[in-house]
Simulated assay, not measured.
Amino acid sequence: MKLDAHQHFWHYDPKRQEWITPEMGRIRRNFVPADLYPLLQEVQIDGCIAVQAEESLRETDFLLDLAQEHEWIMGVVGWADLGQDNLDEVLDQYSNQEKLVGFREVLQAKDPRYMLRDEFVRGMQKLKERGYTYDLLLFPHHLEAALELVKKCPEQRMVIDHLAKPLIKDGEWRDWKKKISLLAEREMIYCKISGMVTEADWKKWTSDDLTPYMEIALELFGPERLMFGSDWPVCLVAGEYEQVYKVVDDFISPLSPSEKANLMGDSAVQFYGI
Rank of each mutant, 00 (worst) to 15 (best):
P254I: 04
D170N: 13
L136F: 09
V77Q: 08
S256L: 09
L66I: 01
F103G: 07
I27W: 04
E155L: 13
D231H: 09
D65V: 05
K126Q: 15
I168S: 02
G131L: 04
Q52R: 10
A5N: 06
K152A: 14
V101D: 00
M214T: 11
H6V: 11
D175L: 12
P166G: 08
K15G: 09
Q93L: 12
I180V: 15
D135W: 09
R157S: 05
S181D: 07
R29Y: 08
C191F: 09
P257E: 03
D249E: 15
Q84Y: 02
K165M: 04
Q84I: 10
V106E: 10
G171Q: 08
K169S: 14
R157A: 08
R225Q: 10
P33A: 06
F31N: 05
A184F: 02
R28I: 03
V150D: 03
Q44P: 00
A164S: 12
M196H: 10
A184N: 01
Q68Y: 01
E219Y: 10
P212W: 12
P223W: 07
V90F: 07
A50S: 12
S181Y: 01
V32L: 15
C153K: 11
M115W: 08
G171F: 06
G273V: 07
W232T: 00
H162K: 06
Q243G: 03
D35F: 03
I45V: 15
E23D: 15
V234S: 02
G273L: 03
A238V: 10
Q97M: 11
L64Q: 05
K179C: 11
E240T: 12
P33D: 03
L91K: 11
W176M: 04
Q17F: 07
L167Y: 13
L63D: 06
W72Y: 11
W205A: 04
D170F: 07
E148T: 12
C191N: 00
S181A: 15
I20T: 08
Q44M: 05
E105W: 00
V269M: 14
H142D: 12
P140T: 10
D4R: 08
Q41H: 13
S253P: 09
D61H: 13
W173F: 09
V159G: 04
L149Y: 02
